[in-house]
Simulated scan of single mutants.
Amino acid sequence: MFSENIYINTNFESKIDSSDISTDSSAPQKKSEFQKNCCKFSKILLTSLIIYFLLLTILFASALITLFTKYSQLLEEKTVMKELNYTELECTKWHSLLEDKVWSCCPKNWKPFGFNCYFTSSDSASWSESEQKCSSVGAHLVVIHSKEEQDFIPRTLDTAAAYFIGLRDEGHRQWRWVDRTPYNESATFWHKGEASSDNELCVILHHWYNRWGWSDASCSNKQKSVCQVKKMYL
Rank of each mutant, 00 (worst) to 15 (best):
E148G: 01
N199S: 15
N37M: 14
I165E: 04
S18A: 15
D123H: 09
K78I: 09
D169T: 07
W177T: 02
S122V: 05
L167Y: 01
S26M: 08
C117D: 00
Y52R: 09
F119V: 05
D24C: 11
Y163A: 00
C106W: 05
K147M: 06
S130I: 05
S146C: 07
E4S: 07
A27G: 07
K108P: 00
L74C: 05
G138R: 02
S121W: 10
E170C: 13
T23L: 12
E131L: 00
L141E: 01
I165K: 05
S104T: 10
S72K: 11
N11Q: 10
L97N: 13
T92R: 06
S121D: 00
S96V: 01
Y209D: 12
I21Y: 15
S32Y: 07
K30H: 12
C38L: 15
F152P: 01
K82G: 11
H206M: 09
E90K: 14
S121V: 07
Y163K: 03
F68H: 07
L205Y: 01
S135F: 14
T69E: 10
V178W: 10
F2L: 13
R180C: 07
E194T: 02
C38N: 13
L45R: 11
N210I: 11
N184Q: 14
K31V: 06
P107Q: 07
E148R: 03
W214I: 04
T79K: 15
H140M: 03
W214G: 03
E99P: 06
P107F: 13
W214K: 03
W177E: 00
Q132I: 02
M1V: 10
S128K: 12
R168N: 06
V229Y: 10
N116M: 10
L84S: 13
L56R: 11
C91H: 02
L55V: 08
T159V: 11
K230P: 06
W214A: 01
E170K: 15
L157Q: 12
E33R: 03
E33C: 08
L98A: 14
N11G: 09
S130R: 01
T159P: 02
S32R: 10
H191N: 04
I50F: 09
L64Y: 01
F115N: 15
I51N: 13
H140G: 05
T47N: 15
S128T: 03
S25A: 15
W127C: 04
E170G: 14
N210R: 14
K15Y: 15
S19C: 14
L67T: 12
K93L: 00
V143Y: 02
A139R: 00
Y118C: 06
N109C: 11
I144L: 08
S136L: 11
Q223V: 04
T66P: 05
Y209W: 09
L141N: 04
A160K: 12
S146D: 08
